[in-house]
Design a protein around this nucleic acid. Structure first.
Length: 580
RNA sequence: GUUUCCGUAGCUCAGCAGGAUAGAGCGUUCGCCUCCUAAGCGAAAGGCCGGCGGUUCGAAUCCGCCCGGGAACGCCA
């Protein structure tokens, strides 16, 4: 809802409460506190533009039948300070309210005056929030899960920005630790195999099997020859990693750019090690007595910390016992810190940079990591409640209803790069935002490339293009939009017009709701619905009509719809075509 | 086994801080361009909202148990 829409509800609630108080004063109701009630938009327009359950909710408190309470409220309500023109009692005790025409004309005027800022609110109070997303492992190419995470994370960040947060996008590059060692070992083995033959050395059991490792080695040999074969093993590994890793990172950066994602920062894990931040975190945990040594490794008392956290959340001992919580290694027997240790340091670093809320978009396979990360923040003196994890379920790649496992072209698992080669970015960004993160989704490559009504992104873009076309058409006849009076705007009374304006009014509230639930997919549904309502309006009402005032009013409506569609598409970095 | 997500129309999914007759798209059938883009719109058909209990004036929505499917449970990240 726009400011006007939000205030309309607020004012209505206030009017209902004062009606209750008045009814109590003049004895129509017995004295009692009215319990919480809601004002909502009924599914069926016959039941008014807004409805309240106040009378039903108050039945017990007032010891009176809901309909009686409703009568008392209706008898005493003063609607003059609200946008409502009338109300009536319906059903078991609902009170339905009907909007005055002024509401609709004011909404259109608000959209027009706010322009591209319509929808923006100060809900977030400019609080610093970080959205960390994708953060793919740089040892190999990015996959479909990263594609989903990219679209969801970037659009979530955009929604938070619009809801008034100070948003920061970050990509965490795991360029250190165990997996870099595995990467080095894999490159090393492939290099030797490439030079001395496949059987000359065994490939490490836990190495990266992907063809990209072989490709990297071949590329190295092409550019630098095979002299490295005579080097010391550590030297060789270092040279190969120094060659391959920056290339992988550069590829990730160019893929993200192609995907229209601009990060505020690419944060390198290696910095946490070189700056001593990882060691510092270990020291803090040691000082707090939350570590112990066992089998040569340093362990962190995860069980103790998470148990405390869960108790605070009201879990019983029995429930916690059932979770079979385990402690975690933070320094391996070989002296290296684990991923988890670096992650604690990383999140500490985020808080230390002044971020109040940390949002991480993770694959659902990380769900076991959620509680221990939050716990670890509590353990070192921060609030784990301010870490929010958006978990994404798997993406199943489909082509015209058939499951796609491998790329036909490369014979390998489909990578994010392949996806971006095959599917328009507009389509990918939109479609990945049509399913909530925590549901599994099928991504249909066939659908993503179709340019017809089956593909929702075209459906929405088409609505925008249609409006542009109307304006152009009228302009060619010398007609342009001008400011309309309230009376003129109030000529918009067709059901299609009223419904369309009502939906426009809901935009700001929808953004806030989306931000609250960390769910940008609400907005793609919102804008799809907006396009639907526009297409219905288009079919029911002609803009170019004899009555100049009505034509201008409809033009104003078109401009408002165009503005909001553009608002959403630009926010999600989807192109906004003027013609299709 | 434990944790977690999911189960709504033939298919893909909305709805879930409890509300009035459960929605959309696709698919099926039938309609709508002498008039601003038919990449659009309308109509019909299609449902024990996985099952059983509980909470209450009222449950697809909240709680419990069961059934079915995915994912995770490493000195991987």
């Amino acid at each position: 809802m726009s400011k006007i829409a939000i205030n309309a509800v607020k004012d209505l609630k206030a009017a209902i409460i004062s009606a209750v108080n008045k009814a109590v004063e003049n004895g129509e109701l017995t004295a009692a506190e009215i319990p919480d009630f809601v004002v909502e938009i009924p599914a069926d327009k016959k039941n008014g533009d807004f409805a309240t359950n106040a009378a039903m909710a108050g039945a017990r408190a007032f010891r009176t039948a809901p309909r009686k309470i409703a009568e008392a409220i209706v008898n005493n309500i003063d609607l003059s300070a609200t946008y409502m023109r009338s109300c009536e009692i319906a059903g078991p005790g609902f009170i339905n309210f009907f909007l005055s025409p002024k509401y609709y004309s004011d909404i259109l005027k608000e959209i027009s005056s706010k322009g591209e800022d319509y929808g923006r609110s100060d809900y977030g109070k400019n609080e610093k929030v970080m959205v960390e997303f994708v953060s793919a492992n740089p040892t190999g190419p990015m996959h479909m899960g990263n594609a989903r995470g990219g679209a969801l994370g970037d659009c979530l960040a955009a929604v938070l920005d619009k809801a008034g947060y100070d948003v920061w996008r970050e990509f965490y590059v795991n360029d250190a630790g165990n997996q870099i060692e595995k990467f080095a070992n894999s490159l090393n083995a492939r290099f030797i195999q490439e030079v001395r033959g496949y059987d000359s050395v065994e490939f490490p059991e836990d190495g990266y099997q992907g063809g990209d490792i072989i490709d990297a080695v071949k590329l190295y040999i092409n550019e630098n020859g095979t002299a490295l074969i005579d080097s010391d093993e550590d030297e060789r590994k270092k040279a190969l990693v120094d060659f391959a890793l920056p290339r992988n990172i550069a590829k990730m950066q160019s893929d993200m750019k192609k995907y229209r994602i601009e990060y505020d920062k690419w944060f390198f894990e290696s910095e946490l090690h070189s700056s001593g931040a990882v060691k510092e975190v270990v020291d803090i945990l040691k000082e707090k007595g939350l570590t112990y040594e066992k089998e040569g490794a340093v362990w962190y008392k995860n069980k103790e910390v998470v148990t405390e956290l869960l108790k605070k959340q009201g879990k019983t001992d029995e429930e916690i016992e059932k979770l079979e919580l385990k402690d975690d290694v933070i320094i391996r027997a070989n002296g290296n810190p684990t991923y988890f240790t670096a992650d604690i340091a990383y999140h500490k670093n985020k808080f230390d940079r002044g971020f109040k809320t940390l949002i991480n978009v993770w694959g659902a396979d990380h769900h076991g990591h959620v509680a221990r990360l939050k716990g670890s923040m509590n353990a070192i003196g921060y609030d784990g409640e301010n870490v929010h994890i958006v978990l994404m379920q798997l993406v199943k790649l489909m082509r015209n209803g058939e499951l796609v496992r491998m790329s036909k072209r490369t014979g390998k698992a489909i990578q994010l790069g392949d996806l971006l080669d095959e599917v328009p970015v507009d389509s990918a960004r939109f479609l990945f935002n049509t399913r909530e993160a925590n549901t599994q989704m099928d991504f249909d490559l066939g659908l993503a490339v179709t340019q017809d009504n089956q593909n929702p992104v075209y459906y929405v873009q088409y609505a925008h293009a249609r409006i542009c076309s109307i304006l152009k058409n009228l302009a060619s006849e010398g007609i342009s939009a001008r400011e309309c009076s309230d009376e003129e705007l109030q000529l918009l009374t067709a059901p299609e017009e009223i419904e369309l304006i009502g939906h426009l009014a809901a935009y700001t509230e929808e953004i806030i709701l989306s931000a609250k639930s960390y769910d940008p997919t609400k907005i793609t549904r919102y804008v799809t619905q907006l396009a639907t309502l526009f297409h219905k309006f288009y079919n029911a009402c002609r803009v170019k009509v004899e009555d100049e005032s009505l034509m201008q009013a409809r033009l104003a409506l078109c401009l408002a719809v165009r503005s909001v569609i553009r608002n959403v598409l630009e926010m999600f970095k989807i192109t906004v075509p003027e013609a299709m």
